[in-house]
């Protein structure tokens, strides 16, 4: 008898209940997000003022450029080779030097190691300002200060890398297992000794992985430095474009691709060794 009654009740309830995935509030929010996105896209397309005839003409231009680029001109291979080497040197030197600067910065930018609030904010300010300025803009700045050349390029890559390495290392420091830290404190070790024993061994693998990754990125960044006169293969590229030596341009582009692939291959092997 009781069972029957329950069943009747249940059906009665089912009829009254309604269900929808989103509440009215959520539906309105979603609609607003769609509308804003659409508006932003339409606005952007209308505002950027594309000269459409050139766009329609692009296939012809591509064909013509390809014809002018072919066959590749390898006569300047010596110059290209040494410019490539210079590019790699810029990447290597700046990555190496950055490591020394980024480590103290990451130490004060990590919440669990920073001495106090002021140092924490100084650390974060350094990281943010380094990261928010692109390498090529740093290069423009340093070319203006030191004149064109490799030095400006090295400094530009360094200033951008400090933020990258510093931020990732800071995160690695914040993610360490705190138990060894506690144990080292319990032995009566000073703060620096705690860092040397409980923190450094834990972040070592992350450190090498980050340095290798940044070296790889820096090779690619160094290839464009020359466009603003800061050394490397980019100088040659810019010169060839300016003189319409398209066959040389094509060779340089090919060389850059080969270099980047090589860098990628080397770093992926190294990364496997570290991890």
């Amino acid at each position: 008898m009781g069972e029957e009654k329950d069943m009747v009740d249940m059906t009665a309830h089912t009829q009254e209940r309604t269900w929808s995935r989103y509440s009215r509030q959520e539906r309105l929010t979603r609609f607003a997000v769609y509308a804003i996105t659409l508006f932003a896209i339409v606005w952007a397309v209308r505002d950027i003022d594309i000269f459409w005839p050139w766009v329609w003409d692009a296939p012809n231009q591509i064909q013509s450029l390809a014809v002018r680029m072919w066959p590749l001109d390898f006569s300047g291979w010596m110059a290209i080779g040494s410019a490539l080497m210079e590019t790699v040197h810029i990447a290597t030197l700046s990555t190496f030097l950055t490591a020394f600067i980024a480590l103290p910065v990451s130490y004060i930018a990590a919440q669990n190691t920073t001495p106090n609030k002021v140092t924490l904010w100084i650390g974060r300010l350094i990281l943010v300002s380094s990261r928010s300025v692109n390498t090529i803009i740093w290069a423009l700045l340093f070319v203006a200060i030191f004149g064109p050349g490799v030095l400006a390029g090295i400094l530009a890559v360094m200033f951008r890398s400090i933020g990258f390495i510093g931020k990732l290392m800071g995160e690695a420091i914040e993610e360490i297992d705190k138990k060894p830290v506690e144990a080292m404190q319990a032995t009566g070790a000073s703060k620096l000794k705690v860092v040397a024993y409980a923190i450094v061994p834990q972040v070592m693998p992350a450190f090498f992985a980050i340095i290798i990754l940044r070296w790889d990125i820096n090779i690619r960044e160094s290839t464009v430095l020359g466009l603003v006169g800061a050394g490397g293969i980019g100088v040659l590229l810019q010169g060839s474009i300016d003189t319409f030596a398209w066959q040389t341009v094509a060779t340089i582009l090919l060389a850059i691709i080969v270099l980047v692939i090589l860098g990628e291959a080397i770093t992926s092997v190294l990364r496997k060794k570290v991890i």
Binding site: P180, E182, A183, M184, A186, G188, S190, Q202, M204
Partner: peptide, 24 residues
């Protein structure tokens, strides 16, 4: 002090861990 989770430094050798007792 001895801990529940041992609190050793995993990536260091046993000897380094032992000697870390002398850090003070």
């Amino acid at each position: 002090m001895v801990f529940q989770g041992f609190n050793l430094i995993d990536r260091l050798t046993v000897m380094e861990n032992v000697l870390s007792g002398r850090l003070g």
